[in-house]
Design a protein around this nucleic acid. Sequence first.
DNA 1: TTTTCATATGAAAACGTTTACATTCGGCCG
DNA 2: CGGCCGAATGTAAACGTTTTCATATGAAAA
Lengths: 349, 349
Amino acid sequence: MVTIKDVAREAGVSVATVSRALNGSASVTAQTRRRIAGVAARLRYVPHGAARSLVTRRTQTVGALLPDLFGEFFSELIRGVDVAARARGLQLLVSSSHGDAFEAATALRAMQGRVDGLLIMSPHVDAGFLREHLAPSVPAVLMNTSVSGKHYATLNIDNYGGAHAMTRHLLDRGYRDIAFITGPADNFDAAERLRGFRAAAKSARTQLLRGDFSEESGYRVGKQLVAAKQRPQAVFAANDMMAIGCLFALIEAGLRVPQDIALAGFDDIPIARYVNPPLTTVRVSIAALGQGALEQLVARIDAPDAPPRARTLDCEIVSRASSGLAAGPYQSLHQRPKSRKHHSSGEIS
Amino acid sequence: MVTIKDVAREAGVSVATVSRALNGSASVTAQTRRRIAGVAARLRYVPHGAARSLVTRRTQTVGALLPDLFGEFFSELIRGVDVAARARGLQLLVSSSHGDAFEAATALRAMQGRVDGLLIMSPHVDAGFLREHLAPSVPAVLMNTSVSGKHYATLNIDNYGGAHAMTRHLLDRGYRDIAFITGPADNFDAAERLRGFRAAAKSARTQLLRGDFSEESGYRVGKQLVAAKQRPQAVFAANDMMAIGCLFALIEAGLRVPQDIALAGFDDIPIARYVNPPLTTVRVSIAALGQGALEQLVARIDAPDAPPRARTLDCEIVSRASSGLAAGPYQSLHQRPKSRKHHSSGEIS
DNA sequence: TTTTCATATGAAAACGTTTACATTCGGCCG
DNA sequence: CGGCCGAATGTAAACGTTTTCATATGAAAA
């Protein structure tokens, strides 16, 4: 391995001068700078990141702790983070907690000292967990969390508002008897979506069906609905994958969507527009979530003592055929239509 | 920040003993070990990764350089890598080259000294690029590359074999007039798939239509086909996204798939099973690709002087309704059916 | 009792940077 | 012509670990 000493020796200067020349900072003659740059290039010198981090206390790396890496949601999220990170010259260290609190703790520990800040999204992470496993000196931004924004920077999707708006959307279309497929019991997003549904559907006939965000659970619920003696007019699933599972169960049974039963989801994952009929859903700009979280984190790294912010990201209703809209013109994944925004909630703290 | 010195002072021992106790290695009394562990826990001591890396020459981190992070393919790939990495206690540093050779070089440089090894997949990376930007001391595994396995460890999908098998599959089903939608001109996978198609379709009537792996390009080709005076009996797209774009163009024009025209893709991205009709395609286990690559990398890190291996991953044909199969029972994303494997190619070097 | 030896612990070097401080050098002002 | 100043460069400390080597301690062997 070629180190800064090799470059210094070869260029006939001290290591300090090499460091200065290569970092472009202090006063170095243009001539020596050129000479050093030449030698460094010839030797293929690459500074040792760990050594540099040790003294500068900066790693130029941010960590992202996610519950899982499976599926389109996290793919989009990581992409959003990556875009914002690369714009700032930051590297991205990813890790998944795999639904296990112990693994989450391990990952968190492993990342400390390797990153300048942390993006955290995990159902097991609550205030106590953080106090236990996260050094107060490490800047962090929590996503989709129930943890109060009082002590930590947070960035949440407006789950409540989105679910509320979608429920109103269904009511507006004349559906008066609406079933809601819930998410996992301990999930914050799921709870908020249910809360939004309940608040908006007070006047309607409703029923709750238990799901867990998985496609299978949606399918099971669909089968239940098919077998039930009295079917609701519309089904609102707490996420798209369950809606899709449900859709397949309904279609298999020969029911027509939306004529026999309308359907709506939440997330607007890419698949949503490809199923038949295309799925009405609540769009959360997942990439924007990642991007926003990273920007918040950078702000926190730059000013660790500023009071943490608690941001909330708006959702919008995307009305497609599954809730009664006629099939529109073809639109590919990259030409997303702008739909109407529901009430804005915006900045809270 | 609490360092090893703080722990040592608090526990009344030297830093060396703390290090030994915490790393569990050398001879330390059970009693002192306990005392030190207690103090470390109380102080919430977390070793500084950079400092440790500096002296051990290990970062416990591997880097992955991908062309992009968009879409299901990379999501699956990263997941596969992550699973294998976590099994070995390795962290994962991701970066995307965004289709730009300069960015790829920058990312590559930024990663050196931060990782123990590199997973590289990028169309711009050829032998010359590597010689220029990758230190020979950094172990690396190249994925989906045209670079010879002579000097670098490589892991390729059996694009040729998969395309060959799919073409035979279409011929077996009686389609004698087959169009092929190509991928980008400079893409290695695309070229191999075309080669496989050509080799298998010698006896059939064929035509080539230019695409670029994007859904839009598939849609354009579909429109072309609809307008053409003589349509092929089947269309084989070099990837699923183009097949899906094409499918939408055909359906929009009122054509029935597969009755009027059969369709097949390549990759078996999750969406493939959700479109109507479900898409016949060539499955490459993307997660297995990522997993295999990481395992190869680990082997290379452990034995840098062993000759590099050039592995090839088998594909399998997944026959769904778009090529004439009757609609089967419902299957969710997690219950993937095992289909027949095409001829194995296996280990090459 | 003395010698030997294993075992537990400590002291200090090393890893590759950056940077505060010291030094050199030439030119300018008095 | 001498002292001073600023610019360019060098010296060495510091960052937080691990690890080699040395040392102390006690037990077993003689």
